[in-house]
């Protein structure tokens, strides 16, 4: 099938970007979206142009490195699907596809469709862990975790950190990402001990990184590849409010 592409080209975070138009005539329906971009890039390189830089790695929807706005939607038209798992069968012959990077002040553009998401790492650094050193762990079965606790912790822990939640949010809020980690750990006895310090530190860090506030539009869950629940955000708010109300100093 034939596809017209309008791809955002931008040299770096300081330059101005714009849509550039490209045409591909031999796109197969079985191609993944990224394979379609590969095909374009080979064509561009052979023409002597610079290829479109985009982030990707595992191409099976788990590493979270890929992610672009496709026709104005994070990761494209399919819900709960990463860019790498989107296939060209979701498009029609003759379609025009707009491809833009995730945009948020906290995600500066590196080049073209590549953005820097290290703000997410900084949020995790500020408290998204259990403070246990190697060697300190007790026997695994000594603290039972019920099936339901483990399953609901997993639901939150499944986040792949791609940033689609931020990109889909009109406030550019990282609430879904941050809250997923907070509630993953708060739901397990191993992690719950540190919840109150964790939540305050992570929420503060989230603001420091320049993300916006959550106003519960719930767009994030719709576009989240792992369908992380927005109720995690409520859990984060609960833990945050509780920590603030009960603060001893």
């Amino acid at each position: 099938m034939k596809i017209k592409l309008k791809i955002w080209r931008q040299r770096d975070s300081r330059s101005k970007g714009e849509f550039k138009e490209y045409h591909l005539d031999d796109v197969s329906k079985d191609m993944s979206f990224l394979e379609m971009l590969d095909t374009l890039n080979i064509k561009l390189i052979k023409q002597g142009d610079l290829p479109v830089e985009f982030d990707h790695d595992c191409r099976e929807g788990i590493c979270g490195q890929c992610g672009v706005m496709i026709n104005g939607i994070a990761h494209g038209p399919l819900k709960n699907t990463t860019t790498c798992q989107l296939h060209m069968r979701s498009f029609n012959d003759g379609d025009t596809i707009h491809v833009e990077p995730f945009k948020a002040a906290a995600f500066p553009i590196v080049r073209d469709l590549k953005v820097n998401r290290s703000a997410f790492d900084n949020i995790i650094s500020s408290g998204g862990y259990v403070s246990v050193d190697t060697g300190q762990a007790p026997e695994a079965n000594s603290i039972p975790v019920t099936f339901e606790e483990a399953e609901s912790a997993f639901d939150a822990a499944a986040c792949i950190g791609c940033g689609a939640c931020v990109a889909s949010c009109k406030n550019s809020s990282a609430a879904l990402f941050t809250s997923a980690k907070i509630s993953h750990l708060a739901r397990l006895p191993q992690g719950d001990k540190e919840t109150s310090t964790r939540v305050v530190n992570m929420v503060n860090q989230m603001e420091e990184e320049g993300f916006g506030y959550c106003t519960n539009t719930e767009a994030c869950q719709v576009e989240c590849p792992e369908n992380i629940s927005v109720l995690n955000i409520a859990r984060m708010n609960y833990e945050y409010n509780k920590a603030k109300v009960l603060a001893k100093k």
């Binding site: 002040a105 906290a106 550019s172 320049g210």
Partner: peptide, 10 residues
């Protein structure tokens, strides 16, 4: 402030 540059196709 958090949005930065807005999307061109949204």
């Amino acid at each position: 402030k958090a949005n930065g540059v807005s999307y061109s196709y949204d």
